[in-house]
């Protein structure tokens, strides 16, 4: 079967598909990097896009720290902005769902996901590449937020190890939410419905311990807020940063660090397989 090639000059011979598990893994790694690189090029070519993303946390700190913050009193005593900032960190991680989802939906909508799927690249390459790019983006978001926090008087009072652990828990949460974003992005029909979902994210992040204690909410809402995965992470990092917290003797409050690890793992365990399955099968 030697068909003449359509573009004889310089036509490329077919690459042998990888045979061994090791070479397959190498291909998957290379494909993931190529996809990550695509997003890095996006940022270089359209820096405005990423600048807007970074603006958001800055504006939030001003808005919640000063506009609402001036009327807030922390139950256990302490500065409201010291209390607030860890909440903002957690909230920004959750908003990452929206970023991931929009990117995934737009790609599917434009047909570029289909081009990837029609190619012999590693099936994992697209999603893994996407998640690496999102993690890089989140580290930048977090760095900007921390800088803003330092400006408005927030400090990490814990040991360097505790501070690092807190940052690690935040990124772990973001990593888990990437898979929620990918899954939701894949099931959305178009960018419009993805935009509607975006609006839903806001209340979801508010129904937590980010801004106020869940005990102050009506019973059922307080329960939802307490069990919100963001709440566990936020309680845990308040502890690790040595920032004023809400205290409390509920099991959730006592085991915040444990739950800040368990929650993300549960989310990944559910949404990673769902996303991969959804990606392999046809979208529509």
């Amino acid at each position: 079967m030697t068909t003449a090639t359509p573009s004889a000059p310089g036509a490329v011979p077919l690459q042998a598909p990888p045979e061994t598990p090791l070479s397959r893994a190498r291909w998957a790694l290379a494909d993931s990097w190529t996809v990550t690189r695509r997003y890095l090029i996006h940022w270089v070519r359209e820096p405005a896009y990423i600048m807007w993303g970074l603006m958001y946390p800055m504006v939030s700190v001003l808005l919640f720290g000063y506009v609402f913050g001036s009327a807030m009193v922390v139950q256990g005593g302490g500065d409201y902005r010291e209390f607030l900032l860890p909440g903002m960190f957690g909230m920004t991680m959750m908003f990452g769902i929206g970023n991931t989802m929009m990117g995934v939906t737009t790609d599917a909508d434009k047909g570029i996901t289909d081009r990837f799927r029609s190619m012999p690249m590693a099936r994992s390459g697209v999603v893994v590449g996407r998640s690496v790019a999102d993690m890089i983006n989140s580290v930048m978001d977090l760095a900007v937020l921390v800088a803003c926090g330092l400006v408005v008087g927030w400090r990490a009072h814990g040991s360097p190890a505790e501070t690092l652990a807190a940052v690690g828990l935040l990124l772990l949460l973001r990593f888990a939410f990437i898979w929620v974003g990918i899954y939701v992005g894949l099931i959305m029909k178009n960018a419009e419905s993805a935009g509607n979902f975006y609006a839903l994210l806001f209340p979801l992040t508010m129904i937590s311990n980010t801004f106020v204690a869940p005990e102050m909410m009506p019973g059922w809402l307080g329960a939802v807020a307490a069990w919100n995965p963001v709440s566990s992470t936020v309680t845990a990092i308040r502890e690790l940063f040595g920032n004023p917290g809400l205290g409390g003797d509920s099991w959730l409050a006592q085991n915040a660090v444990l739950m800040a690890v368990v929650w993300p793992l549960v989310i990944v365990a559910v949404f990673l397989p769902l996303s991969v399955r959804r990606y392999r099968r046809a979208r529509r």
Binding site: L14, P17, R38, I41, H42, R45, E46, K110, G111, I112, D114, R115, S118, M119, P120
Partner: peptide, 17 residues
């Protein structure tokens, strides 16, 4: 997939690149 190309409604290119 090693032996096909797809163009048109069913596949596209990246617009920012």
């Amino acid at each position: 997939r090693y032996r096909i190309g797809v163009t048109g409604q069913s596949a596209a290119v990246d617009e920012i690149l």
